[in-house]
């Protein structure tokens, strides 16, 4: 009986843990949706902001954020795939593997504000590039590099050896095996990692607020060295004028849009992962 009781107690406690986790998420989403939904309208999504965001919409904030993460993805993907292929296919030395892992995890552990300061000192001050969205993309790509690299590595490394052997036995060179067998099969893993990375990058404020963004008065950039508006920095600016109810309302609205973008990226990552699993299971 006591064993059964223990069992039930254990079951109850892990169940409660799950419940608390879900409630936190529901609570957060609930509040954001409850407060943000009244601010959302077609005008809000398609107009530019006026009065430092207290009125008008957030179209340039949305476009700026998306521009930043798309370019960071483009910069990140080849680096991550290259590292993953090297690590999975060429690196045999186990010590070197451990070192690279340590480096990747360390990069993942760097606080985001440090990336911001680094960008400010290196790109803005030292290289004199000024406030530029492209620098922001570079910094964000550095931030998501570990996530994408590990995800790509796992998906390439989990391809059964027999595929490598079969294609080599047909007379394919190593790079042909990589291009024709490993990359096509490992690509969806890399894309999954990329979407998770993007979902994280799009919400980052600290790394880009000194180097890539302006708080208002900017539209679409026409060159690589112009600032953009982004959702997280816009929310930050609006919260600072929280005494104005219109600004606060718009802050909730912008938050809801941001969360929706993150959800879209995360769900697409989930779908690609599910599709990939069904392929590799067969």
């Amino acid at each position: 009986m006591s064993r059964k009781l223990q069992n039930n107690l254990f079951y109850a406690s892990v169940g409660i843990a799950v419940l608390i986790c879900s409630l936190i998420l529901l609570f957060l989403f609930g509040i954001i949706i409850w407060n943000g939904l009244p601010a959302i309208s077609l005008d809000f999504l398609t107009n530019s902001s006026t009065e430092f965001g207290a009125s008008g919409g957030i179209v340039y904030q949305i476009s700026g954020s998306i521009l930043l993460v798309i370019f960071s993805a483009l910069i990140c993907l080849p680096l991550a795939l290259g590292t993953a292929i090297f690590k999975s296919e060429y690196l045999k030395n186990e010590k070197a593997h451990k070192w690279i892992n340590t480096l990747i995890y360390s990069l993942n552990g760097v606080p985001s504000i440090i990336f911001g300061i680094f960008g400010l000192i290196f790109f803005v001050n030292l290289l004199n590039m000024g406030i530029s969205w492209f620098v922001g993309s570079i910094i964000l790509s550095m931030m998501i590099l570990p996530t994408v690299t590990l995800s790509a590595y796992q998906s390439i490394n989990s391809i059964p050896t027999v595929y490598r052997e079969t294609s080599s036995a047909l007379g394919l060179n190593k790079w042909q095996v990589i291009c024709h067998v490993l990359l096509p099969q490992g690509f969806s893993g890399a894309i999954t990692g990329l979407l998770i990375g993007i979902a994280r990058a799009i919400g980052e404020t600290a790394p880009i607020m000194f180097i890539a963004t302006a708080f208002s008065g900017v539209q679409l950039p026409s060159s690589f060295v112009e600032p953009v508006l982004t959702l997280p920095t816009h929310i930050l600016a609006l919260t600072q004028q929280a005494t104005n109810p219109a600004a606060l309302q718009n802050a909730w609205g912008a938050s809801l849009v941001l969360v929706m973008l993150v959800v879209i990226f995360s769900i697409s990552a989930l779908f690609i992962r599910l599709r990939h699993q069904t392929i590799s299971k067969r």
């Binding site: 027999v162 079969t166 294609s167 080599s168 036995a169 047909l170 007379g171 042909q176 067998v181 392929i279």
Partner: peptide, 30 residues
């Protein structure tokens, strides 16, 4: 790679690539 085109190999478990039947036959020469 050249040597392996002259000495082919079939493995224990059939291993087809996630492609069509035709593409699989042509995989080694494409």
């Amino acid at each position: 790679a050249q040597l392996r085109t002259q000495i082919g190999m079939v493995f224990q478990k059939p291993c087809v690539f996630p492609k069509s039947i035709k593409e699989n036959v042509l995989f080694g020469i494409q």
